[in-house]
Amino acid sequence: MSAKAQSLLWIAQRASAALLALCVIVHLVTIIYAVQGGLSAAEIFGRTRGNVAWFVFYSIFVLGVAVHAPIGLRSVFIEWLGWRGRSRDAALVAFAALLAWMGMRAVFAVFA
């Protein structure tokens, strides 16, 4: 992998970190605000079903995680396992896909 590609990964990780910091704050503030006085499953669905703004926000959140976590894991693999090369990159792409799939599945379940 070229120095440029490695630098781009670093930039993607920093950018997604900034995005995630924002998402986590919005997420926490929203749930603390929403849960005041108790909340039922039906009430949650009432707010999230068909709510496009909600859908977009959590899709971005999930995709941010799918970008951020595998890049961090890549450093862990290098430093702790000395794992480099194609097999490592394939494993990381699979991990990113798994995160995106699980996350989006959950988002769709609450949206649709």
Partner: peptide
């Protein structure tokens, strides 16, 4: 100095 062996590590 960029990348895994350089400053980004």
């Amino acid at each position: 100095v960029a990348g895994d062996a350089g400053c980004h590590a």
